[in-house]
Design a protein around this nucleic acid. Structure first.
Lengths: 264, 264
DNA sequence: TTTTGTGAATCCTTTCACAGCG
DNA sequence: CGCTGTGAAAGGATTCACAAAA
């Protein structure tokens, strides 16, 4: 069940002058930590596997085969096995993987064994929704700080956290040990906010603003861009209908107004 | 041009695996479109280029070099030129690309020359924020319908659109010519909702629910998964503890940012 | 000269397919 | 047997680097 069909693999872009490549650090002989390769594409999938695994745990399942886990995660089983072998997992041939053990291994690899304080900047429409979403804290990402520039918002409390002025980003993030910053501001404010976060020591940023953020090497930026997603879907719609207007039975002039398509 | 490529059998009648690859399309040639492959990775970047281009248009810029456009989009200039050559663009050597013309070409490729009616299902925390976000309509994606199961929400109006019961998805989407569906429901409701959308003829879906959607071949699903994004960042935070803090002037490899996914 | 367009090399992922362990 | 782990093959995507056009 749940065999997926058209999900896309990851993509990347962003970051001027350096595209990412991998995730391992350019380590210098650190005797302590064995250098692990773990491809970026694999990391993203591990999070998906983890979701399925926790679900299986709740169901009390003891083991899973790569085939089943892969199907539930919407990927090829060979890919899943390779992903798991990369993080040093060990399944049992002829049996499968131990659910609880694998869950622990994936969590450890993703660094989920301890919480990561998050700072959310921009409590507008989307930001407010994100702050109000309880899933953050539950999944190990406590929202330690909220920021905005709007005087009407600064001072208010959302989900138990007070909104502070963006000018306090530096001091507050450093003081509360924020390691992940979420930018949900309008595009023009994103870069300055990003700079402030980086200056405060934040090395991982999730950007919801429709703009490309420039960051120094060593800072990881992931982007969630609604416009891009919609436009990619638009491309597919256009592909399947060609250029001819969709000839669906009974269009009968319903809703869709003929506006101009200005994507900006 | 186009065609040839002896290595690709391109036809996989049996294989159910079609995910990702590319998005080739039987073009219809309306003005400048010939049947072209257009890699999936390229499509996603075109949307980013478009944003920069419209910005340049507003500034009254007449031309841009691949170097400048690439820098603003956060990509390598060679990649940008290759992307543009794939959609059949034509810059002028020694000069650059005509901003308005290129903008039109990119919009045409992405199918943005006409609006795509969108149906948003799930008007909860996130869904409400999305519905309230005016960017949709402005960018050519008018929200033609809103759905939810909550009796308290059904009947209310958000941003000028009435919220209807999910049971009406089939009828309403077909009647209003919805081509893109946005799923912002809790995980358990996502699959049924997805099925309803597909049954209504929707072939492109943006999924914000933290679950893998199973869809028949021909339906494109893109996922925005907040949990995955946060966990990938967590991985990077954890990584940083094993490597040398600083003292590294040389960049060599740095983080990249896979685009894609996640929510809730 | 400047800047595009693009073959060719390189790198990253995915998929195949099978050896081998339980 | 069933199922994992993985070398090897196959694709894609990115980058290089340079010839050609304006």
């Amino acid at each position: 069940m749940t065999v997926d069909r058209g999900t896309r693999p990851s993509r990347r872009a962003v970051s001027p002058t350096r595209s990412s490549g991998e995730v391992r650090g350019p380590g210098d002989a650190t005797a302590d930590d064995a250098a692990r390769p773990v491809p970026g594409a694999t990391v993203a999938r591990l999070a998906v596997y983890l979701r399925v695994l926790t679900s299986l745990l709740d169901q009390g399942r003891g083991t899973v085969s790569s085939e089943e886990l892969a199907a539930a995660a919407g990927v090829n089983s060979a890919k899943l096995r390779k992903d798991l072998s990369l993080i040093g997992s060990s399944g049992v041939r002829g049996v499968g993987y131990d659910v609880s053990r694998l869950t622990a291994e994936v969590e450890a690899t993703l660094g989920l064994t301890r919480p990561h304080a998050v700072a959310l900047v921009g409590v507008g429409n989307l930001g407010h929704a994100l702050a109000g979403y309880g899933g953050f804290a539950q999944r190990g990402f406590p929202v330690a700080a909220l920021f905005d520039v709007d005087p009407d918002l600064v001072g208010t409390t959302i989900a138990g956290v007070e909104v502070e002025h963006v000018d306090a980003i530096g001091a507050v993030c450093a003081a509360r040990g924020v390691t992940i910053g979420v930018v949900a501001t309008p595009a023009p404010a994103a870069q300055p906010v990003c700079d402030a976060l980086v200056a405060a020591g934040v090395r991982s940023i999730l950007n919801f603003a429709p703009t490309v953020l420039a960051v120094p090497a060593g800072v990881e930026v992931r982007k969630v861009d609604l416009a891009v997603e919609m436009q990619v879907l638009s491309f597919h719609v256009a592909r399947r209908h060609g250029t001819v207007p969709a000839a669906r039975p009974s269009p009968s002039t319903a809703g869709a107004a003929p506006r101009e398509a200005v994507t900006r």
